[in-house]
Design a protein around this nucleic acid. Structure first.
Length: 580
RNA sequence: GGUCCAGUGGUGUAGUGGUUAACAUGCCUCCCUGUCACGGAGGAGAUCGCGAGUUCGAUCCUCGUCUGGACCGCCA
C-alpha cells in the first residue's frame, strides 16, 4: 500500500498524474458499465470513476468499505463546483478491497438524522462524519494556539494531581477509594485551583495546564462530568494587565482558528450593569432588547404583584419592550411567562401598547400618571409588547433575562457565526443565602476583595466587590477567574465571614493556609472551559459535539456502558461493601 | 430531587380503540456510459420500549416501569 495522495488535495494541477488513493466508500453511483465511487478520508472526498475497468469487484463494493484505488487524475468534463476536488476525478485502473464493512446503523454524512443516543452508541461512526471531524480538528487548533501563545509568554505547563484531597464546599466530588489505606478516599480534582496557587507561592510566576476536571453534578447541554479547563495563573500582575494578556490570546485564537479579526479592549461590564441591562451575569450582547428599571414608577400601587415584590428587601420591577410585539398571541406570551417562571420568579406581567393605550390585565391597577411614566421611560412605540417582572432584584433580573434570551431565539436575532466577547467584572465577593442566613463565596473563598473596599468586610460584607472577572462569549461564560487573596489576615477574615471555624479551616485547607505564611506573591488567574469555548466557536448546540467520547445527559457512556458494576473481588480489595 | 417532552422496520418520522401499521431514507435484485443526494422497475425488512389494567378487542386509553432529551435545583 503506497498512498500517493489524500482525498482532499487533488486539483486540476495534478491532471495526468498516476495516483494511489486510500479511503472509505462514502457513496457509489452505479450507471451499469459506468461506476462512480466517492472515496473519503479525513481530508475530503475524491470521485473515482470506473469505465472499461468495471468488474465484479467494483460491483461488490458497498458503503464504508475501505478501498485502495490506483488510477490517473483527469479533468472533469463538467466540474462539480460544490466539491473542493470537483475539478478532477480519478480514472481508476485497479481496485483493492482493503476491508469490508457491515451496513452501518447510521448514515455517515453531515446531515445525519440519527438521534444522539444512536450517535453516542456508535460514536466511532459518528466521528467519521466530516462535520464531527472538523469540530475535533478545530478544538485541537484552539488548544494548540493557546499553548503556543502561553509558551511564548513565559507560562510553564505544569501538571497537578488528579487524585487529590476532598475539600467539601464547592461542587460534589468523585471519590476514589484507597486500596492501601482502608476506609480512606482520594477525590478527583474538580479544578487545580489550590495547586496552581501553591505553584505561585513556589515562585513559578506563570503557569498553565490543559487540565481535566471532574464534577459529580447533573449534566446539561453545556456541562460534562469530566471536562477540560485551560487553567492559567500568574504572579505580580494587576487585573487589567492580566486581562490584556488573556484578550491577546483570545484574539490570536479568533484569527488562527476562525479567521476573524477580533479587536482588543473587550467591553468591561460591571456585574450590576450586566444584570440591570441584560438580566444575566453572562449576557449575549449581540442584540438589544435591554431591560429597564421601572421600580420607582410603582412605589405606590394597588397592584398586588408589584406591591408584594416591592415589600421584599431590594424588591425591583424590570421591564423589557418588544417593538412591534403587540401581535404576539396568548399562546406565545404564555410561553414567555413559563420561561420567567422557570427562572426564578412567579410570573410575567404582559402589556401591549396599541393606539397609544396600554392593554393587559394589570392596567386597571395603574394610574394615568403611572401609565404615561411607564410608556415614556421605556420609550415604547405603538404596537409594542411590554413585559415586566417583579421580585427581589436578582430574581427579577434573571427571570426577565431568560425571557430576553427566549425572544432572541424566537425572533432569530443572532447568527451562530457572529461572535461578541466581553468581560463581566466587579462581581460581589459574597452571596447572602436567606434560607441558611449566612454568606457564601460567590466565586470561591480565595477570591481577593477590591483593595479599596477591604474595610467593608467588617461592617457590610454584602457590599464588597471582588477582583473577579468572567470572559463571556455569546451568552456563555467561556472563562472565569480572579485575583486571589495573598494576605493571610484577609484570608482568615474571609473564612470567618463564610462561617468556617478554625477547626474546619485546619481540616480542609490547613496545608494551604500554612503555605501562605512563607511569602505569597500577589497572584491571580483564570480558567477557560475549553469544551464550552470550542462549542461556541464551532457553532455547536451541545458540548457533546466537541468531545470525542462524552457522557450522555444521564451521566452514562452509551458506547462503553459506563458506569457499570464491578466484581466482588475488586470491591473487597477496596474495602467497599454495597449496602443496597 | 423536580417539571416538561419523546420511545413505531437499520435510521428518522407519520398514524389509528378493529388498518394489509404509512412515508422518507438506507438495504437487496434487475436495467442504465457522465453521475455527483444519479435515475428507473421490483423486493425484503416492525412481536409499535417493557409490565399490568380497562375493553369483545390496546400500538393507540389508564397506571406503573425503563430508556433518552431539554430545563429547574445543583455546578465554591
Amino acid at each position: 500500500m503506497n498512498r500517493t495522495h489524500t482525498n482532499g488535495e487533488l486539483t486540476a494541477a495534478n491532471a495526468g498524474q498516476k495516483v494511489v488513493l486510500l479511503g472509505w466508500v462514502a457513496r457509489r453511483r452505479n450507471l451499469g458499465s459506468l461506476v462512480f465511487i466517492d472515496l473519503r478520508d479525513r481530508t475530503g472526498i475524491t470521485q473515482c470513476v470506473f469505465g472499461e475497468t468495471v468488474n465484479q469487484l467494483v460491483k461488490d463494493v458497498r458503503n464504508e468499505y475501505i478501498l485502495e484505488i490506483t488510477g490517473t487524475v483527469e479533468l472533469r468534463k463538467d466540474p462539480n463546483v460544490k466539491m473542493p476536488t470537483g475539478q478532477i476525478e480519478v480514472k481508476a485502473e485497479s481496485i483493492v478491497i482493503v476491508n469490508t464493512a457491515e451496513l452501518t446503523p447510521m448514515m455517515i454524512q453531515d446531515d445525519t438524522d440519527a438521534l444522539e443516543d444512536t450517535r453516542l452508541k456508535y460514536r466511532y461512526l459518528d466521528l467519521r462524519r466530516p462535520i464531527m471531524q472538523d469540530r475535533l480538528i478545530k478544538r485541537a487548533a484552539i488548544v494548540k494556539t493557546m499553548r503556543n501563545y502561553l509558551d511564548d509568554h513565559g507560562f510553564i505547563d505544569i501538571e497537578t494531581p488528579m487524585l487529590t484531597k476532598s475539600t467539601p464546599e464547592g461542587s460534589r466530588e468523585y471519590l476514589v477509594p484507597s486500596r492501601v489505606h482502608a476506609g480512606e478516599f482520594y477525590a478527583l480534582a474538580q479544578s487545580p485551583q489550590i495547586f496552581k496557587q501553591m505553584l505561585m507561592i513556589a515562585g513559578l510566576e506563570r503557569y498553565y495546564q490543559i487540565a481535566r476536571c471532574f464534577r459529580d453534578e447533573d449534566l446539561r447541554a453545556d456541562r460534562q462530568l469530566d471536562f477540560t479547563q485551560v487553567d492559567i495563573e500568574a504572579s505580580f500582575l494587576s487585573e487589567a494587565e492580566f486581562q490584556l494578556i488573556i484578550e491577546k490570546m483570545v484574539v490570536k485564537v479568533m484569527k488562527e482558528v476562525i479567521g476573524r479579526d477580533q479587536k482588543l479592549d473587550f467591553l468591561k461590564l460591571p456585574f450590576a450593569d450586566a444584570m440591570n441591562r441584560f438580566g444575566s451575569d453572562k449576557p449575549d450582547i449581540r442584540y438589544g432588547l435591554e431591560l429597564t428599571d421601572v421600580t420607582d414608577i410603582f412605589t405606590e400601587t394597588e397592584f398586588a404583584v408589584f406591591a408584594n415584590a416591592l415589600a421584599l428587601p431590594d424588591g425591583s420591577l424590570k421591564a423589557l419592550v418588544v417593538a412591534d410585539g403587540a401581535h404576539f398571541t396568548r399562546k406565545e406570551t404564555d410561553a414567555l411567562t413559563e420561561v420567567a417562571k422557570k427562572n426564578g420568579t412567579k410570573g410575567l406581567v404582559v402589556l401591549k401598547l396599541t393606539d397609544g393605550k396600554l392593554e393587559g390585565g394589570a392596567v386597571k391597577f395603574f394610574s394615568e400618571t403611572q401609565q404615561e411614566a411607564l410608556i415614556s421611560r421605556l420609550n415604547a412605540q405603538n404596537h409594542s409588547l411590554i413585559l415586566v417582572t417583579a421580585d427581589r432584584w436578582e430574581s427579577a433580573c434573571n427571570a426577565l433575562g431568560a425571557v430576553r434570551t427566549a425572544l432572541r431565539d424566537k425572533l432569530q436575532l443572532v447568527s451562530k457565526d457572529d461572535f461578541a466577547f466581553l468581560w463581566v467584572v466587579d462581581f460581589p465577593l459574597l452571596e447572602y443565602n436567606y434560607e441558611d442566613e449566612r454568606f457564601y463565596a460567590r466565586h470561591h473563598p480565595f477570591t481577593r476583595p477590591k483593595e479599596e473596599q477591604l474595610h467593608l468586610l467588617d461592617t457590610d460584607p454584602g457590599k464588597v466587590l471582588a477582583s473577579a472577572y468572567d470572559l463571556v462569549l455569546n451568552g456563555f461564560e467561556v472563562a472565569g477567574g480572579s485575583l486571589r487573596i495573598y494576605d493571610q489576615k484577609v484570608q482568615e477574615k474571609m473564612f470567618e465571614i463564610i462561617g468556617f471555624t478554625h477547626q474546619q479551616i485546619r481540616e480542609r485547607f490547613g496545608f494551604f493556609v500554612d503555605a501562605f505564611k512563607y511569602g505569597t506573591p500577589p497572584h491571580g488567574g483564570i480558567a477557560f472551559g475549553l469544551d464550552r469555548f470550542a462549542m461556541v466557536l464551532t457553532a455547536s448546540d451541545s458540548i457533546r459535539d466537541v468531545i470525542a467520547f462524552p457522557k450522555n445527559a444521564s451521566a452514562r457512556c452509551p458506547l462503553t456502558e459506563a458506569p457499570a458494576k464491578v466484581d466482588q473481588k475488586q470491591l473487597d480489595e477496596l474495602h467497599i461493601a454495597i449496602v443496597k
